[in-house]
Design a protein around this nucleic acid. Structure first.
Length: 624
DNA sequence: TATACGA
């Protein structure tokens, strides 16, 4: 175990080197089974591969996807033929009917042309990737050099009725030519675990509560089925002719503006030349441009809750045609601060009820209480938990240091000094410092700058311009220290963050998990340092449990805090999954033993990390 | 009580 900060950085660097090396050896399309290397999230697979060039798109892909038209003529869609809008069971819902991986039962009218389907829009669509010649180039940056064999080690658990089986390749899924082409352009050769499970579930029309780390391919996991579904046009309705009112078919909500932008950018790529129109709406930016975008037509609306409520109140958006609802970082969206707004949007406007629309909730953690709330939005849903093995928390070295409130600044300075001295070319590695308050963020940023550490800050009181500027400046290494409130804790994809410092620890262990998840990405290891003192007593228990679960060294003094704090919550439902299906523990399931008959457990328990152990199948987590 | 989310 590293004994000093510098040691752990050194250890981290060598570990990262090894992991990347073996990933390249494994290579895309290689059948090598040697060397399980680190799981690299899909959007970060653009690590320059020094010794290997990315292979061409997988052979298994080419020509193997039938067009959707081949499959048309399955089950009749209840939306077809007009009649009662809410009438009839949702296609594939309720666990009856089609649940095959091939999704053969879908279909109905074939490609609908509401948004142009295959045809319209292709010429007029602005190439989101720059000029037309560089399209391939833009996609190019996506991912290369991943060892897909590492996926096999990630444990996945599903529960619910008649869970559609997972797929192993994109070729097995009938997503349509245009979408397939974008997948190929993105060099997504093989689906990530969350995609392997979530996409068939979603294509089968089922609701989904999915627990997976950000960076595991979640965005694609909900975007692909939505785009594909919209292209098939399984809606019998023409949008009502209401002037200046937009009628999106899909709504994707996320808790921060930056995250919505990020999702929008990704969705644009996936939807390129499909005729499916993606629009983003968030606060802090002039609303006029967003209104114009909406007026020009929207199929998928990505939004933050506040701005969406605004748009709904102005009657510029109607949710009555929504067929897909996705909540990203769903646990945050349903916690105290956001819940009323979300309920208002989902339950008190004109959105179709659960069972009519299809709902997908994604988050890295899913506390039981939140699952209970979330169940209100879902109908006969599948619970999916993708393990963390090989994903971020395994790659993060977590340290906790006892630091008095008054010593925090000088202690941080020591860390930064050591880091700079230790860094490559004397450069400061990207360091993300979390504080509790917006004022605290400003103060610390100022103090760092005064002490000649190039720092910037991001929090909710800054203008959107300032926020984006700070993020850019941090990403580019211009100001390699970013002081942040929880606005930056979730979902944001900032490559190369070497160190996360919890200057102020959060009150909730799940927030801690999200925060440290900003490092340890791209198959690199990362370092997370927390400053702990009496103010954090309530976190002692869960923090020490979490660290123990992650095979981290737990200082003896922390364990003593943990024992002392009677009220401290223990880490529930965690383990190698962010959570487990609360229905499995509830009394509702008593006497319904095969309620989970469709559930299946992957064979991922021999995973690296040293905590695979004496647990047989049926045990959700070795850490429970 | 903090954070985030519309002006």
């Amino acid at each position: 175990m590293p004994t000093s900060w510098a040691d752990s950085v050194a250890a981290e660097n060598s570990a990262a080197g090894g992991a990347v090396g073996s990933a390249n050896n494994g290579g895309v399309g290689s059948n090598s089974v040697s060397g399980r290397s680190a799981y690299v999230p899909p959007h970060l697979r653009n690590r320059p591969a020094p010794s290997s060039t990315p292979s061409a798109p997988a052979a298994s892909y080419a020509g193997s996807v039938s067009t959707a038209n081949d499959r048309i003529g399955g089950q009749v869609d209840s939306f077809q033929g007009g009649g009662n809008r809410w009438g009839g069971p949702r296609l594939g819902g309720g666990g009856s009917g089609s649940s095959g991986a091939s999704v053969g039962g879908r279909g109905g009218s074939g490609w609908n042309t509401r948004s142009g389907g295959w045809g319209r829009g292709r010429e007029r669509e602005v190439n989101p990737f720059g000029d037309d010649d560089s399209t391939e180039e833009m996609f190019q940056q996506e991912n290369t050099g991943i060892n897909f064999d590492a996926y096999e080690d990630i444990p996945v658990e599903t529960s619910g009725e008649n869970v559609p089986p997972p797929v192993n390749t994109f070729a097995e899924i009938d997503l349509g030519d245009a979408l397939n082409q974008n997948i190929r352009r993105c060099k997504y050769v093989k689906p990530t675990p969350v995609q392997r499970y979530a996409i068939p579930i979603s294509l089968a029309g089922r609701d989904l509560m999915a627990c997976a780390q950000t960076g595991s391919g979640k965005t694609a996991a909900f975007c692909f089925p939505i785009i594909s579904g919209i292209m098939r046009g399984q809606h019998g309705q023409r949008p009502p002719r209401v002037p200046r009112m937009a009628f999106p078919l899909a709504l994707i909500l996320s808790p921060t503006r930056e995250l919505s932008c990020q999702i929008h950018d990704e969705a644009k790529k996936f939807a390129y030349q499909t005729g499916v129109r993606v629009v983003v709406a968030y606060g802090g930016a002039p609303i006029n441009q967003q209104l114009r975008d909406l007026e020009r037509g929207v199929d998928i609306l990505v939004a933050t809750p506040g701005r969406l409520v605004d748009l709904l109140e102005r009657a510029r958006v109607s949710l009555q045609l929504i067929r897909y609802l996705a909540l990203d970082e769903a646990d945050r969206m349903l916690d105290m601060g956001f819940e009323p707004q979300i309920r208002r949007i989902v339950e008190q406007m004109d959105m179709p009820p659960p069972g009519v629309r299809q709902t997908m909730l994604f988050s890295a953690t899913f506390p039981k209480e939140i699952q209970r709330l979330a169940a209100d939005f879902l109908s006969s849903y599948v619970f999916l938990a993708v393990g963390r093995v090989g994903s971020s928390t395994d790659l993060i070295v977590q340290r906790v240091e006892y630091v008095h409130e008054s010593d925090k600044r000088s202690h941080l300075m020591d860390l930064l000094h050591a880091q700079r001295a230790n860094g490559v070319h004397g450069k400061q590695a990207l360091t993300l410092v979390f504080v509790e308050t917006k004022k605290g963020a400003d103060a610390l940023e100022h103090w760092l700058c005064v002490n000649s550490f190039p720092a910037t800050a991001i929090h909710g009181d800054r203008t959107q311009q300032e926020r984006e500027q700070a993020l850019r400046s941090f990403k580019s290494g211009n100001t390699p220290i970013l002081v942040a409130t929880d606005v930056a804790a979730r979902g944001l994809d900032i490559p190369h963050v070497a160190h996360v410092v919890n200057f102020d620890l959060p009150n909730d262990i799940d927030d801690y998990v999200h925060r440290i998840g900003r490092t340890g990405r791209a198959g690199k290891t990362g370092l997370a340092t927390a400053f702990f003192n009496e103010n954090n007593t309530s976190l002692a228990r869960s923090l020490s449990d979490l660290m123990q679960e992650a095979n981290q060294e737990v200082p003896a003094w922390l364990s003593r805090f943990a024992v002392r704090s009677v009220h401290g919550k223990s880490r529930r439902g965690g383990g190698r999954f962010g959570s487990r299906d609360f229905r499995r523990e509830s009394s509702l399931t008593r006497g319904v033993t095969d309620y989970y008959g469709g559930g299946n457990l992957s064979s991922g328990y021999g995973a690296p990390g040293g905590y695979a152990g004496s647990y047989g199948p049926g045990v959700t987590s070795a850490w429970d």
